[in-house]
């Protein structure tokens, strides 16, 4: 598979770009040394590609495929995957069973293409027995799925990749680096002269055009949940793509987009996802978490 990347020079930093995990990926390196910038870009691309290949549910050669095609047998997983599953388990409990990595099968009936194709109640009822992390036997490092169930680490993977990449780059490069994979962002240190990185937040009504505001980020992670382009519209009701795994239906009155700043990208990502799952209580939830957030 050919992998391409670009390196652009700015006044006092470089921008490296490539595509991975089906989104534009970007890293900003606060240095004047081109070799350092190239090195950081190579590390970022390698790590993003590695995590994509390892955890993508679209591949047939990885651990996710093996688990999803285990037909009820027990699978032993490696330590990294085990770490992800432990984390998914904790998120399931912390979100009161709303964040569920087994809910991916709902995509078989819900296709968010802006159309009015709403599944029937019967279709939803039929698929619910195949959902529920509590139906899975997870005893690190062994996982057993019931037949017909699937797991999807997509809700964790990108944010995880951002933090992992940031940490790996930081092991060999002392200059500040900002990692941005499709809007999920992290940095471990401020730029030169202790100036923050500035991050623009999208207006969900005007995707990609107007920035709602600029967020200064010295260190930490930022993530956005919600996608203005992914919804269904029927009888004047807008169905968001955030699905409640306990009902099989979209979460009513979910915000269009939630952006959170936290210690790490993964933490920000989970808080914004949990907020979406709270529906009209999203703001209340985020206020209780004592974090910086934008809810639209």
């Amino acid at each position: 598979m050919p992998q391409t990347s670009d390196l652009i020079t700015r006044d006092d930093y470089f921008i490296g770009r490539f595509t991975a995990m089906a989104c534009p990926c970007e890293i900003l390196i606060s240095t004047n040394d081109k070799k350092t910038a190239i090195h950081a870009l190579e590390i970022a691309q390698a790590e993003a590609t590695r995590i994509e290949q390892k955890f993508s549910r679209y591949r047939k050669d990885n651990i996710i495929f093996k688990i999803n095609n285990s037909n009820g047998t027990t699978i032993e997983v490696d330590e990294e995957t085990a770490g992800m599953l432990d984390f998914a388990n904790q998120c399931y409990e912390l979100s009161d069973k709303k964040f569920d990595i087994t809910s991916g099968v709902l995509r078989e009936i819900w296709k968010f293409d802006g159309s009015n194709n709403i599944p029937s109640k019967q279709q939803v009822m039929d698929i619910l027995p195949r959902i529920g992390w509590n139906k899975i036997t997870w005893e690190n490092p062994f996982i057993t799925l019931q037949r017909g169930m699937e797991i999807d680490l997509g809700g964790i993977g990108k944010e995880y990749a951002v933090d992992q990449t940031t940490q790996i780059i930081h092991k060999t490069i002392t200059d500040s680096v900002l990692v941005n994979f499709g809007g999920d962002i992290a940095t471990l240190s401020p730029r030169k002269n202790n100036t923050p990185w500035l991050i623009g937040v999208d207006d969900p009504e005007n995707t990609g055009r107007n920035a709602l505001g600029q967020i200064p980020l010295l260190r930490g992670g930022l993530a956005t949940s919600g996608d203005a382009r992914r919804y269904l519209l029927k009888d004047g009701i807008r169905y968001s793509h955030i699905l409640d795994p306990t009902t099989g239906w979209p979460v009513p009155d979910a915000p269009r987009s939630v952006t959170v700043v936290a210690n790490t990208c993964l933490e920000a990502g989970m808080l914004s996802t949990f907020a979406m799952l709270e529906g009209n209580k999203a703001k209340e939830f985020l206020q209780a978490q004592d974090v910086q957030f934008w809810c639209a």
């Binding site: 330590e79 990294e80 992992q164 790996i168």
Partner: peptide, 10 residues
């Protein structure tokens, strides 16, 4: 061997 390629060695 890069640090992230040490899953087997570990």
């Amino acid at each position: 061997v890069q640090p992230w390629e040490r899953d087997i060695l570990a």
